[in-house]
Amino acid sequence: MRLAHALLALQAVTSREVAKFVRQGGRFASALVRPLLWLVVFAAGFQNVFGVSIIPPYDTYIPYQVYIVPGLLGMVLLFNGMQSSLAMVYDREMGVMRLLLTAPLPRWYLLFAKLLAGTLLSVLQAYVFLIIAALFGVTVPWMGWLQVLPVLVLGGMMLGALGLLLSVQIRQLENFAGTMNFVIFPMFFLSPALYPLWKLEESGAEIIHFVAQWNPFTHAVEAIRFALYGQFSAMSLSIVVGCLVAFFLLAAWGYDPQRGMLKRTGKPG
């Protein structure tokens, strides 16, 4: 694989994803309205219900709106990651996937290009959300804007890779709603996005607390939270990277013409 060829292919995949995204204006709007509803409405209603004590990385009491910003950034990445899964299924139904998979490049690289393209959209949306949150008066430290970038990229890739992995299994577009119910919502609610996990432990929901600790999304949110305040959560970040690698390898395996799960169904990419 020549580097120039690899970059051209990445450009091909990315510009198509961006063109599609621009065309679907509603997707961008809903990607922003969703977390804004939580920030503006939900957080306003609940800010006195949840008392958030001082826990790392915060060094002072913080308003609830500030607490949920990392979780809502995670939500933006999560939805867009699942969207990339939807795009794969759509491409498969439309036949464009065949075109992609018959390009003279290693298949894992083509999937990787898809992943990078989706992550670019994820990260851009996350920053637009941060800007709008700032306009609503919910701010994070200025340095955090920069420090969170690598974590957003890794978190976005991890959730995008999960989307790719799911796209191996989802045979039809109609099944996407099922993914929403069984992947997105449990991942979001079983995480520290809306409440610190010790609250779950305190309330005696031990099993839920246990599951939440093993939720990759938990660690994406925590890694983002620490990075926004200039701190580095080694454990969360390494779990995010580990899951990224695992999800991507499994997805690449799923799309392999020899071994993959596609083989079982007899329906090609």
Binding site: R2, A4, H5, L8, A9, Q11, A12, S15, R16, L99, L100, A103, P104, L105
Partner: peptide, 9 residues
Amino acid sequence: FHTRLHGIA
């Protein structure tokens, strides 16, 4: 899209 996938610049 096709030329890029095939590395033609």
